[in-house]
């Protein structure tokens, strides 16, 4: 891994909720273009980490730097979530959060449009920029729907999509924001084996064809092993191991955390 081209640089982050420490002194580095996975048992703090990376929570200690490109750096600390997205970080959620009453097309279009500029005046008066942006976002939305394989579902309401399609829709919507890095929170949870294969393929294509770095939380070890170049293992809010999948699988601390011997051992290990 080349340390000079990082996309995410998380340094010594600690996040507390009252007495609960969700993240304790967590440091994570992701290289540009990398597919990086974060694994760990339930309650380990994976989602909390995502929320810190997207500005939803601000950690009490530490620093999170995002590099949209090699010579730019943006501090995520204290930045509002929508600003973080605008800087180039997109995410999906562990439990699906679609705009259920809107169609598939509209869902993705909202993602695409979010970075456009048309304001209320332009929208009301149909100024030229509004018309141009409408055309552009329609075009881009269709491209993205085709990319994730949902163009035939364009006019379907989001809530009448099957579960696997909903996952893909959420990914398309997030891609609409033109991210540099995409954070996926358990994208394969609740999908069936064939959908898992499609999803693996989709994530790989996003990474390779669109050049988007991927940060992935996933429980399904097969999926993680086939995608990720490197893993971080969280347990009780601490990074207990990092490295390529092969090594991780044999790491005793990780095995202990997952097999769940006594809790204290897991943390101290």
């Amino acid at each position: 891994m080349s340390t000079d081209d990082l996309i995410f640089d998380v340094r010594d982050v600690t996040l507390r909720f009252g007495g609960v420490t969700s993240l304790n002194n967590v440091s994570i580095q992701q290289s540009r273009g990398e597919i990086l996975a974060v694994i760990g048992p339930n309650g380990a703090g994976k989602t909390s980490l995502f929320n810190c990376l997207t500005g939803v929570y601000t950690p009490q200690v530490g620093e999170i730097i995002f590099h949209p490109s090699q010579d730019q750096s943006v501090s995520i600390m204290g930045r509002l979530p929508h600003k973080v997205t605008q800087a180039g970080v997109a995410r999906t959620f562990q439990t699906s959060r679609m705009f259920n009453a809107l169609t598939t097309f509209e869902n993705v279009k909202i993602g695409v449009e979010a970075r456009h500029k048309t304001g209320p005046i332009g929208a009301m008066l149909h100024l030229p920029r509004r018309n141009r942006e409408e055309r552009e976002s329609d075009q881009r939305t269709l491209e993205l729907l085709a990319f994730v394989g949902l163009e035939h579902r364009m006019n379907t309401l989001a809530d009448s999509l099957p579960y696997g399609d909903r996952r893909r829709l959420e990914i398309a919507r997030a891609l609409g924001t033109n991210p540099k890095v995409l954070l996926l929170d358990e994208p394969a949870a609740g999908t069936n084996p064939s959908e898992k294969l499609e999803l693996t393929d989709l994530i790989r294509r996003i990474n390779q064809e669109m050049g988007v770095s991927i940060l992935l939380i996933e429980h399904d070890m097969r999926l993680v092993m086939s995608l990720a170049e490197r893993l971080y293992v969280l347990n009780f809010g601490e990074v207990i191991a990092t490295g390529p999948p092969k090594e991780i699988q044999e790491n005793p601390a990780v095995i202990t955390a997952y097999l769940g011997t006594t809790e204290t051992e897991g943390v101290s290990g």
Partner: peptide, 29 residues
């Protein structure tokens, strides 16, 4: 004016916020 406002980016953003503010925020709204 209000009809075209509702059928525009602005109107859709309102719909998004109404439905799921967290998701809307995650898209940069």
């Amino acid at each position: 004016l209000f009809t075209s406002l509702n059928n525009s980016r602005v109107g859709r953003s309102w719909a998004a916020i109404r439905e799921d503010e967290v998701a809307a925020t995650s898209l940069g709204i």
